[in-house]
């Protein structure tokens, strides 16, 4: 499959919904000032093995970029002692820290450069994105998405990681807002009561409630207690989505491991922190997607099939 098509497929899976330029870029950036000499840029490129150096003013605002080809030209013209200012490119194509992954990809596709500086609103340089950064972001995003499916026959064409339906409507909505644990679990209790009115069987309602409860408790003990619990219950299936506002899960594969937990002793004294919640969710759901990442929100979506009983 050509790269563009693979990226398209991954995008379809919603794998990159959490990635923006600030999470793709590398922040260990070497920059020069306009008055520095071209020779300095050449040394920097050679020593750090980089192919372009951003040029910034005294306030670190991006004013230009000097690439290997410019250095070669300057070398041919014997202008290594001149200031960077005189040879640098001034209209630099740059990205904004909040640009989406889609924007980054289209930038690489349209401009065929190997690197793009990333700037803040005020024009200050905050990082650089090379094609290597993009590749490693793609690889990292595999660690921040977990997909579990018992119906493994589904193909990319008929399946996307997160249900689109939540964007339009949900049948059940609960705002999780919890300091400590005092009302943790109330949302799942309401969800259960709601599902019981919908004519679903006892056992699928139990599975959905248990999983919603585990996810809700996780929001309360690991994610500051703010989030949402929503559900769609139609056509013989229950879809439950629990979202929070971070701090996210850095390595989801690890978090899925039974017994693995970052809970404190204080939480264990409250009856949680055995590291079994996500494992339970996997066991009791028919389809599970988790999207998260370090300093990202966590989204857990689970599907329960009524006809499984």
């Amino acid at each position: 499959m050509p790269l563009e098509q693979s990226v398209e497929a991954l995008r379809y899976l919603g794998l990159f919904s959490n990635l923006d330029a600030s999470s793709v870029m590398s922040t260990a950036v070497h920059a020069l000032h306009p008055e520095d000499r071209v020779a300095a840029a050449r040394i920097l490129m050679r020593e750090k093995s980089i192919s372009g150096v951003p040029i910034v003013d005294a306030d670190f605002r991006l004013v230009g970029l000097i690439s290997v080809s410019k250095i070669i030209e300057a070398l041919a013209d014997g202008r290594l002692a001149d200031s960077v200012d005189s040879v640098m490119t001034r209209d630099v194509i740059s990205l904004h820290a909040h640009d989406t992954f889609e924007t980054i990809l289209s930038c690489f596709q349209r401009f065929k450069f190997g690197r793009f500086p990333v700037v803040e609103e005020d024009g200050r340089l905050v990082g650089m994105i090379t094609d290597t950064d993009v590749l490693s972001a793609i690889i990292r995003s595999f660690y921040s998405v977990y997909v579990h499916d018992q119906r493994r026959t589904m193909t990319l064409g008929s399946f996307s990681a997160l249900s689109k339906e939540f964007e339009n409507s949900a049948d059940f909505v609960y705002g999780i807002s919890c300091t400590g644990l005092e009302n943790a679990g109330e949302g799942s209790a309401r969800l259960k009561a709601f599902l019981q009115t919908k004519g679903f069987g006892e056992s699928v309602v139990r599975r959905a409630s248990v999983c919603a409860y585990e996810a809700e408790i996780n929001v309360c003990i690991h994610a500051g207690g703010k989030g949402s619990l929503r559900a769609i219950a139609r056509n013989g299936e229950i879809i439950v989505r629990v979202e929070d506002e971070g701090p996210g899960i850095e390595n989801i594969d690890l978090a899925m491991k039974e017994g693995w937990s970052t809970a404190t002793d204080a939480i264990r004294e409250l009856g949680f922190g055995a590291g079994m919640g996500l494992a339970n969710i996997r066991r009791f759901s028919d389809h599970l997607v988790i999207i998260s990442g370090k300093d990202k929100p966590t989204k857990v979506e689970m599907i329960f099939l009524a006809d499984k009983e």
């Binding site: 644990l181 943790a184 599975r207 949680f272 055995a274 079994m276 339970n280």
Partner: peptide, 27 residues
């Protein structure tokens, strides 16, 4: 530990626990 309890799926079970938080009841 409540997640340990939640891993079990037999409704006709007596839960024996030393935990007396609202989450015991929710579980």
């Amino acid at each position: 530990l409540m997640s340990d309890v939640l891993a079990m799926s037999r409704p006709d079970t007596l839960l024996i626990t030393g935990l007396t938080t609202p989450q015991t009841i929710r579980t």
